[in-house]
């Protein structure tokens, strides 16, 4: 594991471009990749794979249940299948197929669940997942990841292609900031402590890591020392890092683009209780609501999970304890 931070959030990359490019390079390297989609070939960023590499791609049509079971089963012939759809159609709709035909069968499957949570934007509740961590975390032996940036996203894809297993890779397709420098590598099951402090520790998942860094900057301006953990692995949880770090802080805040039920707040909260951690704990997440249409900023605000809300939560604690 060797990663380096960008140190600013100015350079960005489109995840869908990373998806297509990473798949293409792995195919060119001779890896036995099978890229699958369910009528969203033009959306995932893997469109060029379907045009150019017919032997390495298959469009299942709007048949996600069949896609999950069929794609996972293709791994019996040595393929490493990658499937994509918008997050609800590769989580809520197919939980049993993931459970039986992928997990229980010990087949290989990489699920790219795109536009999770508020990233569904104008598609509303039907296309919004605030429950997919809960669904996927509860299936035995499934790896659940929430990359914070293009570099972690690509690393997860390559890790799966090398090692197999069942991966639920939950990430937007959009242009998001690079948190890490190109070429950084990570370790399976390990979270990344990307900022060290002493007062408040923010543990964030996925694109919320960028919001956590913004919040940290603003809190620093107010004289508060902040640490940030990029969780990356939702399951398995990096208990070692969490146990080690939480002891150094007075307040721990978890932030997630997910329902508070079954999400990272619950997972971290349970860990803090098990370790008898001597710190305050706040969890920011969606409070049992369905999705709705809107811009990302509007939705973050409605669900009270923006950097603004992280700052507010930290300040409320500090003011109360001054």
């Amino acid at each position: 594991m060797s990663w380096e931070l960008q140190n600013n959030l100015d350079s960005k990359k489109e995840i869908r471009e990373v998806y297509g490019n990473t798949l293409e390079s792995m195919i060119k390297e001779g890896k036995d990749i099978m890229v699958c989609d369910s009528d969203l070939v033009g959306s995932s960023g893997a469109g060029k794979i379907f045009e150019t590499y017919k032997e390495n791609s298959v469009n299942f049509g709007i048949c996600e249940q069949n896609m999950i079971a069929a794609a996972a089963s293709m791994s019996v012939m040595g393929y490493k299948p990658f499937v994509h759809s918008f997050s609800p159609f590769v989580s809520r709709r197919v939980m049993d197929q993931v459970y039986v035909s992928a997990g229980f069968s010990k087949n290989d499957l990489h699920i790219y669940a795109s536009e999770p949570g508020f990233w569904s934007q104008y598609n509303g509740a039907t296309h919004t997942t605030f429950e997919d961590f809960a669904i996927m975390r509860s299936i035995p032996e499934i790896t659940v990841v929430s990359p914070s940036d293009p570099v972690t996203f690509a690393w997860v894809m390559r890790y799966y292609a090398e090692h197999g297993g069942v991966f639920y890779n939950r990430c937007t397709r959009r242009n998001i900031p690079m948190i890490y420098k190109e070429g950084s590598t990570f370790a399976y099951g390990k979270s990344n402590l990307i900022m060290e402090g002493s007062d408040v520790l923010i543990i964030a998942e996925g694109s919320m890591v960028a919001d956590a860094l913004e919040a940290a900057k603003r809190l620093k301006d107010r004289g508060i020392s902040v640490g940030v953990i990029d969780l990356l692995f939702i399951k398995p949880l990096d208990k070692e890092l969490i146990d080690q770090e939480v002891r150094k802080y007075k307040l721990v805040i978890s932030v997630e683009n997910h329902n508070i039920y079954g999400g990272i707040g619950e997972a971290i909260g349970a860990e803090l209780a098990l370790q008898h951690a001597d710190c305050e704990f706040r969890r920011l997440g969606v409070h049992d609501r369905y999705g709705q249409v809107g811009t990302v900023d509007y939705l973050k605000d409605i669900y009270q999970i923006s950097s603004e809300h992280i700052v507010k939560t930290a300040l409320e604690y500090v003011e109360h304890h001054e």
Binding site: Q65, N66, S73, Y79, Q97, V100
Partner: peptide, 25 residues
């Protein structure tokens, strides 16, 4: 036993996946 089945509907999906993979290979 070559496939884990019992959740109705999934075996035939597994079969088409395996058939397609065998065809490609």
């Amino acid at each position: 036993v070559q496939c884990s089945t019992g959740s109705l509907g999934q075996g035939i999906s597994q079969a088409v996946g395996i058939a397609y993979a065998n065809k490609l290979k």
